[in-house]
Amino acid sequence: MALAFSPDSQKRAEEILARYPAEHKKAAVVPLLHLAQKEWGYISPDAMSCVADLIEESPVKVAEIATFYPMFNKEPVGRHLINVCHTLPCALAGCSDIVTHISGKLGIGVGDTTEDGRFTLKKIECLAACDRGPVMLVNRELHTHLTPEKIDTIIEGLE
């Protein structure tokens, strides 16, 4: 089944396309993939086709881009995507204990999604907040100076 953006997203897509010279529509591919992911939660082959139509490229071309970037989910993920930074400064600040705590609390390993579809746990590279480590990104929100207690509060606050 062909996917189509909601009217709001369609409007947003046109706004994005207008930022690039008409002969370089392809430049909009990454921002449009972000929009698609916002709309459908992940980038399915149908979502790729939808973006491909907008930039007048083949779906294969879009797939080539979507598969390169770590931020684009190729599979559905949980309602809340937890990305814990594990790069050096956060490692020095104790991020491995944080991963262990979340993993234990949710009963899932890194890369997995809880059975109820609420959470997916991943590791991510440096989030440019190294002075406030350990840090994690939950959906669009950055959480800093993490402790097990802080994590419990954050997780319990999510639907």
């Binding site: 440096c126 440019a128 190294c130």
Partner: peptide, 9 residues
């Protein structure tokens, strides 16, 4: 994205 850098943020 350089690990250790957070100035541009």
């Amino acid at each position: 994205s350089e690990p250790g850098s957070f100035k541009d943020r």
